[in-house]
Amino acid sequence: MPDLNITCEPRGDGLTFLTAEGFLDAHTFEKMEKTINALFDEGKYKLVVGLEKLDYISSAGAGVFIGAIGVAQENNGNLVLLNPTPNVKEVFDLLGLTQIFPIVGSEAEATAFFG
């Protein structure tokens, strides 16, 4: 069954890089939500979410990031999206979220974003 795999890599510079692989939909979104909430519980609010291996996202998946970005920003962090696939980027475009989420094309850009 198509599923969602998430890897989580804390970096020394205070950033946490997540990688989402597979399908982020109404069936799998809670897995991403729990991962991000666990990072928030650890005081990690500077998140980079790698989307280059995410094949599919629906509004339920995008909703996780919508819920998280405000929490991150309120705690001097942010939620940066790295390299979304064209299908995933199109969903963000449709929802108008490309105006709201920082989207970068490389890890170096993501690191530079947090300055």
């Binding site: 629906s58 509004s59 995008a62 405000g70 969903v91």
Partner: peptide, 22 residues
């Protein structure tokens, strides 16, 4: 209103919006 949606941290209610857009 997606900006209001994000400000309110509303995670739901986007599906119908998507359907109508598509």
């Amino acid at each position: 209103d997606i900006r209001a949606h994000v400000a309110a941290r509303r995670k739901d209610g986007l599906g119908i919006f998507m359907i109508k857009k598509i």
